[in-house]
């Protein structure tokens, strides 16, 4: 599990996040939604120590070491052109190595395992620059998985992908968290996907949590108008949940 308690992030005098109090339970997948600039990415970064914060980020019986206890996947990962997939995933073992260490057999096994589960075996010696968007996203996920951290923070894992790859990645995250009992918090823009796949939705706006609950509770037309200034239709689709469809303004 991971919880933020009274977490505040400010740049100079400007408070960009908080105070936020939020808990994601063991094995739970929470979708973090909200308009651009709501503070979703910053909240995730605060947990890993990329931005300094006040308040407490608590991982229960874990110490909350960046990398070891929390794996963070950025929105736009920097992929060194010539690095190959295997070596990229291998960098996920960094938190376990110490500054002067080198990889043990166990480290290589973890990497092999991550590569196999994300079906990157045939791509493992390909340079990152030759991967398609979907393949690159899988490589980044594999690197996060190789960290073997119990908590996974994903910043817009599907933003660069077409609808087919979006579904693939969401299915994959679902499978991984079920198999490994991972705790997942993912910032996500697509409200329909967010509602269909995650256990719970948390909506942020102007740095604070404005709604927290099931998709049916959080995704209402009024709330989306209030916070996104978007006209949408929320409809029951089938047993999978809701669909959120943008509506054009009347001419």
């Amino acid at each position: 599990m991971i919880s933020w308690r009274e977490v505040v992030v400010s740049f100079g005098d400007v408070v960009v996040v908080g105070p936020v109090t939020l808990t994601v339970g063991d094995g739970e997948w929470v979708g973090l939604i909200g308009p651009n600039g709501a503070g979703k990415s910053t909240l995730l970064k605060a947990a890993v120590g990329i931005v300094p914060h006040e308040g407490v980020v608590d991982l229960g019986d874990r110490k909350g070491e960046a990398g070891k206890d929390i794996a963070w996947m950025p929105q736009r990962p920097l992929l060194p052109d010539e690095m190959n997939v295997a070596n990229y995933v291998l960098l996920g073992r960094t938190p376990h190595l110490g500054y002067l260490g080198s990889e043990s057999g166990h480290d290589l096994d973890s990497v092999r395992n991550a590569i196999e589960r994300l079906e990157l075996v045939d791509l493992s010696d390909r340079p990152l620059s030759t991967l398609s968007g979907g393949e690159a996203q899988r490589a980044v996920l594999a690197r996060a998985l190789a960290q073997e951290a119990p908590v996974l923070l994903l910043d817009e894992p599907t933003s660069a992908l077409d609808v087919g790859h979006q579904q693939q990645v969401m299915e994959l995250i679902d499978q991984l968290r079920r198999e490994d009992g991972l705790t997942v918090l993912s910032a996500i823009h697509d409200l329909t996907l967010a509602g269909q796949y995650t256990d719970r939705l948390v909506m942020m706006d102007h740095g604070v949590v404005v709604a927290d609950g099931s998709a049916r509770e959080v995704l209402t037309e009024e709330r989306i108008m209030d916070h996104y200034e978007a006209r949408v239709r929320v409809a029951e689709s089938n047993e999978d949940g809701l669909t959120v469809t943008p509506m054009r303004r009347p001419q």
């Binding site: 960046a66 920097l78 960098l91 960094t94 960290q147």
Partner: peptide, 13 residues
């Protein structure tokens, strides 16, 4: 590791 950018390197501890 630094080749991944500062933020990701911090994220990797």
């Amino acid at each position: 590791v630094l080749g991944l950018g500062d933020e990701e390197a911090v994220g990797l501890g």
